[in-house]
């Protein structure tokens, strides 16, 4: 913004000053609705959750007691919450690298093709668009132990060489194939799989956009410097050039992964899966806070959740801001 020229005549400066006051007023009127809503809808709840996490409040009770950090202590001592952290962590630590890796892999493959690029791109993006709850129900049928497509397909492998080389197959054929959603050994992995299935297309599209910005000349330069193999070119040119995309993709996938809920509620409306093996944080907030009206504990989980998500976003911003600035 250019500053007001000092050589302006006095009358004009006054007019400008009058205009500035008007502009100021207009600006506050224009931002007022947004500001009000930001405070009521976003900031106030964070503060309320923070306060309630130190109480034993329940909806419908007239009063409440301050209980200090007891709610937080529960989170770190009870077995249920240990399972909660384990499930959330397993999910995030699995889904983030796998869906980012698959996203990058498919983007590189598609980018190197001459034909059919658009078709692959469209198909891989479909799960991102589809209502996750509906697709969760479809997956539930696919994974049905007796009539589901997954086990039927696996049964076709019985009696073939697969039985010899793959112990899982041999066991399945001898006895029966897993019940997937009812088995605590598989439940969380099924949830992870659906998370990857749904999300990697999103990452792929972001990577494809990132790849278009890698300059051709860079590859030539790398080749001249002796980077002959495809792997060398990837390591020296593509990967560094995709840095900003990767930072963004990893953060957004992390934040989404923390929020997994739909599939779990669809498969196990109560209790968070066999032996609570899929009892993730979002589901815990829902179950404790809303269904069981234990608002203190629910708020404590909410605060931890917010802390995780904010921490991640701040790391991302710090990484990004070393490159670009918003002004």
């Amino acid at each position: 913004m250019p500053a007001i020229e000092p050589s302006l005549p006095v009358a004009k400066t006054k007019a400008v000053a009058g205009h500035a006051a008007k502009e100021r007023r207009a600006a506050w009127v224009l931002t007022a609705p947004a500001l009000t809503l930001m405070v009521i809808v976003l900031l106030a709840p964070v503060i309320i959750a923070g306060l309630l996490s130190f109480t034993n409040y329940s909806l419908g009770n007239s009063g409440f007691d301050w209980v200090g950090t007891r709610n937080y202590e529960k989170l770190f001592t009870r077995a249920t919450y240990e399972k909660m952290f384990l499930a959330t962590l397993t999910y995030v630590v699995t889904v983030v690298p796998v869906s980012v890796g698959l996203g990058l892999g498919t983007a590189l493959l598609i980018n190197s093709l001459g034909r059919f690029r658009e078709i692959y791109k469209t198909i891989y993006f479909l799960p991102v668009m589809a209502t996750l709850l509906a697709m969760a129900i479809a997956w539930e049928f696919m994974l049905h132990p007796s009539i589901g497509m997954v086990n039927r397909t696996l049964e076709m492998g019985c009696g073939t060489f697969l039985e010899q080389i793959w112990p899982f197959m041999a066991d399945g054929c001898a006895d029966r194939f897993p019940v997937w959603l009812g088995d605590k050994r598989y439940a969380i992995w099924v949830i992870c799989f659906i998370g990857v299935w749904q999300g990697f297309g999103f990452n792929m599209v972001l990577y494809l956009a990132g790849l278009t910005s890698v300059h051709r000349e860079l590859y030539h330069a790398a080749e001249m410097d002796g980077a002959k193999s495809a792997w060398e070119r990837f390591r020296l040119v593509t990967w560094p050039a995709l840095g900003p995309t990767t930072v963004f993709v990893v953060t957004i996938t992390c934040i989404r992964a923390f929020q997994v809920f739909d599939t779990i509620e669809a498969f196990w409306p109560q209790g968070g899966g066999p032996n609570k093996s899929t009892y993730v944080m979002m589901f815990a907030i829902f179950e404790k806070g809303i269904q069981q009206n234990l608002i203190g504990v629910g708020s404590a989980i909410t605060m931890l959740f917010l802390a995780f998500v904010m921490f991640l976003t701040l790391i991302q911003r710090w990484l990004v801001e070393r490159k670009v600035h918003y002004k």
Binding site: L42, I48, L52, I255, M282, I295, M310
Partner: peptide, 18 residues
């Protein structure tokens, strides 16, 4: 910029209470 850090799903419980 600060509010961008807050996912609405995460504060569902206090919003529900309000």
């Amino acid at each position: 910029l600060f509010c961008l850090l807050i996912p609405v799903h995460a504060i569902a419980l206090p919003l529900y209470i309000m």
